[in-house]
């Protein structure tokens, strides 16, 4: 074997800064997309559990469409096809004037896709609370909106902390798809280091360690949070 190891490359200028920069973009994509996915997913979850059949239909249709098309294909649709379907002026703006086109497109695509998954988690959380609390809320005179805000959602979120954490980590990992439309996030950055230095082994190892460290840190933190926010009287299902 003629492979020349050089682990020092990872700590030398400029490569260490490439890694830092890549991680920065990965985290920014993950967090922005998560805000979108969480808000929209919660709204869709409410719609799917609502008593209004039209709202339920909208929620179900959204979920079926977004989870049955591969994320990469959705990303390409947003990046290549969407601007062409807009009126000329708007399409031109999206293609040329929009700030950080690759980043913005990835955040939208990832956020809209993950919203369909968050929606399913929120729905299962609300379902798990049972009809009793909903009826009790209505019985004491709360409107349906207030039942959701004060009774169902706070409980549902506490029940689904674990699945929501794993959805966040999925977004974090899926952010690597941004490289397919030219965003230089962490995975793309390590490819770039490999390309410049030919030290692929070292570069991929660095990315692997960074992804694992972030994942395990988030998991540890959320496990701690889950214990503190545990809804009394519910059996904890061992994951």
């Amino acid at each position: 074997m003629q492979y020349n190891w050089d682990w020092g490359i990872l700590f030398r200028d400029p490569y260490i800064w490439w890694l830092v920069d890549g991680l920065k973009w990965t985290l920014m994509i993950a967090m922005c997309a998560w805000v979108l996915a969480f808000v929209l997913g919660s709204a869709l979850g409410i719609m799917r559990t609502s008593i209004n059949p039209y709202l339920r239909l909208i929620g179900t249709t959204y979920v079926e469409i977004f989870r049955n098309i591969p994320l990469l294909v959705q990303l390409f649709l947003w990046y290549f096809v969407f601007p062409e379907l807009l009126p000329e002026e708007a399409g031109r703006w999206v293609k040329r004037e929009m700030p950080l086109p690759g980043f913005t497109t990835t955040v939208w695509a990832l956020g809209l896709y993950t919203a369909s998954r968050v929606c399913e988690q929120v729905r299962s959380g609300i379902d798990a609370i049972g009809i009793g609390q909903r009826n009790a809320g209505r019985a004491i005179g709360l409107s349906e909106a207030k039942v959701y805000i004060h009774v169902l959602l706070p409980n549902a979120y506490r029940i689904i902390i674990a699945p929501l954490t794993s959805e966040f980590l999925t977004i974090f990992k899926n952010s690597s798809l941004a490289l397919t439309i030219g965003v230089i996030e962490l995975t793309s950055m390590t490819r770039q280091i490999e390309e410049y230095t030919f030290q692929g082994f070292e570069a991929f190892t660095a990315a692997t360690i960074i992804y694992s460290l972030v994942t395990f840190t988030v998991m540890g933190f959320m496990l701690h949070l889950e214990k503190r926010l545990h809804v009394p009287g519910r059996i904890v299902v061992e994951k």
Binding site: N174, S175, S176, L179, T187, E194, F204, A207, F216
Partner: peptide, 17 residues
Amino acid sequence: NFFRSLPLILVIFWLYF
């Protein structure tokens, strides 16, 4: 746990190399 913490794209690149 290790594989579940990694993006699939990175695993594809790793094995390709």
